[in-house]
Design a protein around this nucleic acid. Structure first.
Lengths: 348, 348
DNA sequence: TTGTACGCGTTATCAG
DNA sequence: CTGATAACGCGTACAA
């Protein structure tokens, strides 16, 4: 490992002061052409590049944003991260990822790490809302004192920060309407955990939709489960095996595409053919939706756009006085074949 | 935004020197109990935490590793990143992600950024081998002067760094053997691009396997394509429509699970039933493999373990003199139903 | 047990 | 146009 040349080394060797070296590096026009050339030569010879640590120290900022989320391997989250990454990059910023182990809340360790690193801003995504609300507010308040904070959160969370709200209303309404239009009346919802405020909200919004449309909201049609494929399998099994066949729903709305994947598998295993015997709709519009069998109709929350907005606002908040901000990116239903839309209206 | 308290502020307010503050923070035992308490009080009052930038500057290192890969949203890569993240975390290190836009090579910008940031090490993953080999070596050499370098690469790349080699031999052998055992003789390979040395190597390894087992390696059975689902669809269509039905292969090995996904869709669209009419095997053993229809038999390269080893070696290399290092994590075939293994031997 | 003084690599300010 | 010099925030000898 070679010792990296410092600005001192360059200055000495070029016979100028460090100030001049900086000027050359920064393309400052008021440097005599000859001096510039001489200095540049030395710079090139040593492949000199300023140290980011030193620059940050002196500037008091890091030109880096933090993204905090539960797990990068989930497509919903890595789409957020990826979008944030490139949006930040466009603005000369880097992005650092922090993962909050499992379903755990935002930890004090992460909070202090963010402050230690003098992050220029932080974006929270994922179900940190499941945390005790007081803990969460404490953490956010603390962070807010040192850097702009943004969250991608449910609409009614109302945190004192930049809130990019996911369109949970349409996220519930769209699938139910779609199914209703296609003739479905008995619609179930599976996935999500009642322990998470985010998830239960999703279930609640769904129930509300049913009521609004005068559809039965049989409690047996609402089964609590996790967020992954196994949860989907289990949920379907539990729900259907607890019900006489005559009372089975004709459609299932799932918490997300992963749950839908599991549900589809279990439904097929039970001998149902999709979408004839059971319609199903997912959420997140993940990359594999077009490749399930049948292709999965799904709600797109547009995480990329939310992440982009978040980053933009974060960067803006740095300049102007940090103002509260809220926006919603409308959700979208991507209709494929898992509800039988291509087969037309389906009478009971 | 509040100004963060510095070590000076604390020292002044506690009526001690900065040195003592440091001692308290660092839990240095040789400081009088009373002083410690007093200082600690001030620290708590101001929620003082040392600045990472300043620490890094003074220490000359960043306690951070870089992971460079093409795209985080691909499961193969985010599994690598995630594993690296937690392994580093266990060692008190953070990990920073750098994405090399699209199929592009490792850019000089990234190289200099890594140096500017004084990374404690860097791990390259993905098909940067497709780069002109000279460019790649130049970049790696340059980096190697300042930090340990590790790569997850094909076995015969032999770069002058820590090489964690993916087991491309078994990656080809396993599926072919499996298919052969099940009675398949006409085996095709789709996906990957001949422009990438990595990908062509994969195809080449496959061809070699065929020959070793005295199976026909009809050039029509090897179709170049990309790395995603659309590529899979197109490849199948192209291959099959260009062949009389009597000459169709009975099995297809795909470049990865994404390609397999596309292939499955296209095959079904053409009216084939799987695995009876066509066996198929993927690669990467992605999370959705158990949930395709039929469940996809796939090769697992164990990216997590490779990433872990890489990080461990990187951290080790920091201490001892940087030595070359190479290891292979053996690939594994995860047998599900897409080759009909559960149906037993399949005579021609 | 505690404090002083300096180095870490840069940038900005202010003279010249 | 260029050069000192003072921050930036912290750690660490060395001294007391």
């Amino acid at each position: 490992m070679v010792r990296k040349a410092t600005i001192y080394d360059i200055a000495r060797e070029a016979g100028v002061s460090t100030a001049t070296v900086t000027r050359v590096v920064r393309q400052d026009p008021k440097v005599k052409e000859e001096t510039r050339r001489r200095v540049q030569q030395v710079i090139d010879a040593h492949a000199y590049t300023p140290s980011v640590s030193a620059q940050n120290l002196e500037a008091g900022r890091s030109r880096a944003l933090a993204v905090v989320l539960p797990v990068i391997s989930n497509t919903y989250f890595n789409r957020i991260f990826d979008a944030a990454y490139w949006e930040a990059e466009r603005n000369g910023c880097s992005v650092r990822l922090f993962q909050t182990r499992e379903n755990q809340a935002i930890s004090p360790e992460i909070v202090s790490e963010l402050i230690r690193c003098r992050m220029d801003g932080v974006l929270f995504a994922g179900s940190i809302w499941s945390t005790d609300r007081d803990d969460l507010n404490t953490a956010l308040d603390k962070l807010g004192k040192y850097m702009p904070v943004a969250t991608i959160c449910p609409p009614d969370v109302a945190l004192d920060c930049i809130c990019i709200q996911s369109d949970l209303v349409n996220c519930s309404r769209l699938p139910v309407r779609h199914l209703h239009t296609l003739g479905h009346r008995r619609i179930a919802f599976i996935g999500g955990s009642m322990h998470s405020k985010d998830a239960s909200r999703r279930g609640a919004g769904f129930l509300e939709q049913l009521r609004q449309m005068d559809l039965p909201d049989d409690p047996a049609y609402h089964v609590d489960a996790g967020y992954d494929m196994e949860s989907g399998e289990r949920a379907v099994l539990r729900m259907l095996s607890g019900l006489e066949k005559s009372r089975w729903p004709s459609a299932i709305v799932t918490f997300n595409d992963l749950v839908a994947l599991g549900a589809i598998k279990q439904l097929k295993k039970m001998g149902l053919s999709l979408p004839q015997d059971m319609a199903i709709v997912g959420c997140d519009n993940q990359f594999f939706c077009a490749y399930t069998d049948p292709p999965l109709t799904s709600v797109d929350l547009h995480p990329e756009e939310m992440a982009q907005s978040a980053v933009r606002e974060l960067l803006l908040a740095r300049e102007s006085a940090s103002r509260s901000f809220a926006m919603v990116r409308e959700a979208t239903l991507v209709i494929r074949e898992s509800c039988g839309a291509h087969l037309g209206y389906r009478p009971l």
